[in-house]
Design a protein around this nucleic acid. Structure first.
Lengths: 228, 228
DNA sequence: ATTACTAATCATCGAGTAG
DNA sequence: TCTACTCGATGATTAGTAA
């Protein structure tokens, strides 16, 4: 008779609450509601609505500012993320897997890609999960901030997971790979869990993309990303 | 101590079940799962997954065919509808209100639009909720079956409701209106709850659209539909 | 192997109400 | 008015197990 783990899935009423708030604009600016109003909109009692609010605030999905009357409510980025994840779950069903075409320019990295891609701990995973051993070096592409936001949706795609590990007395972080075409050439976009760059995305392939595509720094490239 | 009304909102686990099945293709073809597999995927026990299946089958959201091992599961149109409604709820948040541009050709109706639009029971509602009294006659537009499917998404939009009523010893059905532009001219697409046509959509406006736009039968028109 | 019933336990609800 | 607590009733869950 051990304790059950805490729920990882939100209850439908809690999700409905976040959706209601987002629909009222709480994903951008604070909105004003009382727990009674919310309960009425959700078809539950004031007490239940209040419990949902407390739970969602506890989970840091929203922030509350209690006033004498009603309260200011605003979704946190984590709260918006929850909704966006739900959205993409449904989107996949009705719109099919996502696709994305983004442009950027080739740039030079710090050369550390070569070091990481040479680690046996990574190589065995690449071989097993991608079916090839990457050329030891990433092609780095710098993208405009606006395009970076578009690329960010791959966070919700299911990619190929590369797990972190320990070796040589240090920790190597995990990453996720997404199928891609770089100027038409098959490759993978690789996103480290703890990224080093702000506006740069990295690509790997069996061969040197820079050589195979004849690319130099500042050359424009077209990236096509495909879900699953 | 009265009985609580039965839930109108699906529990998140039940929704997750429908989503899981749809993701596996059960919205098109039957899929094979055991209640144990589903329970594992949902993070609940076999017994709970089984109860969800029973509840969803009871609600006619899916059909089950029990075999000696596992079971064939397929979502019904009603089940797919549930998911699509959820999808549009989220879509509105992240993508904004929907828009749609469809083409079709002008056609002649049975002339019954004139009769219906002359009923005072409708007119008072049009005046109050649309802000005008429609010209007594609908413009009928025939659309290709494929386009009809695209138009069907307005089912999930929130339009302006026109309620049914009783008068002169008979029943007049309800309808929903959606903001539209017909060849650029402001109008409303009106969808009767019980439609008489298969491939025809009807438009109303303060004036005669046919005259104002100089349209004859078989003339092509462009319809722009806008959500809320 | 399945599905699905029963019983015991846990979670959640709304009513009442304090602050 | 609000938020949010306690509490008894009701729902929902899992373990055990029948078929």
């Amino acid at each position: 008779v051990s304790a059950r783990p805490t729920r990882d899935r939100l209850r439908s009423e809690e999700l409905a609450l976040l959706r209601l708030l987002a629909g009222a604009g709480a994903d951008r600016d604070p909105v004003i509601f009382s727990s009674r109003e919310l309960g009425e909109a959700l078809g539950v009692s004031q007490q239940a609505a209040d419990r949902y609010l407390m739970a969602m605030a506890q989970a840091t999905y929203l922030t509350r500012t209690l006033g004498g009357r009603k309260q200011r409510l605003q979704l946190t980025p984590a709260g918006v993320e929850v909704l966006r994840r739900e959205y993409h779950g449904y989107r996949r069903i009705f719109e099919g897997p996502g696709q994305l075409r983004v442009t950027g320019v080739v740039t030079s990295g710090l050369g550390e890609g070569r070091y990481y891609l040479s680690q046996p701990g990574y190589i065995v995973q690449f071989q097993e999960r991608l079916g090839y051993t990457p050329f030891p070096g990433t092609l780095n592409v710098r993208v405009a901030p606006k395009e970076l936001l578009r690329i960010d949706v791959v966070r919700h795609w299911r990619g190929t997971r590369i797990d972190g590990f320990q070796a040589s007395g240090r920790t190597f972080g995990g990453a996720t790979c997404y199928a891609a075409r770089l100027n038409g050439r098959s490759s993978q976009l690789i996103r480290p869990d703890r990224t080093h760059y702000q506006d740069v995305v990295e690509f790997i392939a069996p061969e040197s993309l820079r050589e195979a595509l004849g690319l130099r720094d500042e050359d424009p490239v077209t990236m096509e990303l495909m879900e699953s």
